[in-house]
């Protein structure tokens, strides 16, 4: 029973992680919070669903399509809601992305309707019985894809020149400029990557829970924010761990505490962890300069 919850929690947690590491990347590079990240996730889920329903493509193609669409959306958000505000107050981008979030949400409500919708059974879900444990193809696909994308991001950041430039920008954008790094290009690429990952996470979570709604971005956006703070603001590894932790907490609280207190329970635990470790699990960042 516990092991079963562990698998379920891992499935939920890996989609949270996928969403949150992109969020951490954007937050780290810009030192800002991008409120509409959850809405990008929501639109990714809807676009993936439309592709399956109307273009009749298979699930994997739909996911690639959703990622491409949210990638473009991310670049657009950077242009419209971040770049023009670079010289403004640090709260300006917070408000402008809040505006983007509302626009995307109402757009989704008007175009797709407010009722929860789900993916049709577009592929055969097989279940494998391993002793007490039921592992379905759904588990395997979601966990596998989420971890594969996170591994790809890790390799990108640690093994490529552009990844190195991205990390340098995240650590200190001002110094990065003097090292010949075009920070604007890094920021655009960061938005594109983070948004594509959010789109993928939306499709995966939509597939897992079969309840896609225009407001799901708000709730999950707050969760992603909690995750990156839990992991240590702007820390990629921390965001990944934080996502898994939140997924496990939610599933465990439904299984062992009460389903009506799921979010209260998991956020209560996050608050406790933050009281003990105010900089988050992997936070070691000290803002001394700038």
């Amino acid at each position: 029973m516990f092991l079963q919850q562990l698998i379920n929690g891992l499935m939920l947690g890996s989609t949270y992680s996928l969403l949150a590491i992109g969020y951490a990347l954007v937050s780290g590079v810009l030192d800002l919070v991008h409120i509409a990240h959850g809405e990008v996730f929501m639109l990714g889920a809807f676009i993936g669903l439309q592709l399956v329903l109307f273009a009749k493509v298979n699930f994997f193609v739909a996911m690639l399509g959703a990622m491409t669409a949210t990638l473009v959306l991310g670049i657009f958000i950077e242009r419209a809601a971040f770049r023009p505000l670079q010289k403004g107050d640090f709260l300006s981008p917070l408000i402008s992305t809040l505006g983007v979030a509302l626009i995307l949400q109402e757009f989704a409500r008007n175009v797709f309707g407010a009722h929860p919708v789900g993916f049709p059974a577009s592929f055969q879900i097989k279940s494998y019985q391993l002793g007490f444990l039921t592992v379905s193809t759904l588990h395997l696909i979601i966990i596998g894809l989420a971890f594969a994308m996170m591994a790809a991001l890790h390799l990108f950041l640690t093994r490529t020149t552009f990844g190195l430039a991205t990390r340098a920008t995240a650590e200190n954008a001002l110094t990065a400029r003097f090292m010949g790094i075009n920070v604007n290009v890094v920021v655009v690429a960061t938005f594109a990557i983070a948004s594509a990952m959010a789109g993928a996470a939306g499709v995966l979570l939509g597939l897992a829970y079969n309840a896609i709604t225009p407001v799901m971005g708000t709730q999950i956006g707050l969760k992603a924010l909690a995750i990156i703070v839990l992991g240590g603001f702007g820390n990629i590894t921390g965001a990944m761990a934080g996502g898994i932790i939140l997924g496990l907490l939610e599933v465990m609280s439904v299984a062992y505490v009460s389903s009506t207190y799921r979010d209260a329970f998991s956020f209560g635990i996050i608050m406790l962890i933050l009281i003990i470790r105010p900089t988050g699990l992997f936070g070691h960042r000290v803002h001394s300069e700038q």
């Binding site: 020149t161 190195l164 430039a165 340098a168 010949g180 790094i181």
Partner: peptide, 8 residues
């Protein structure tokens, strides 16, 4: 290596 960025 970050310093070498522009030369790669």
């Amino acid at each position: 290596l970050v310093g070498m960025h522009t030369r790669l």
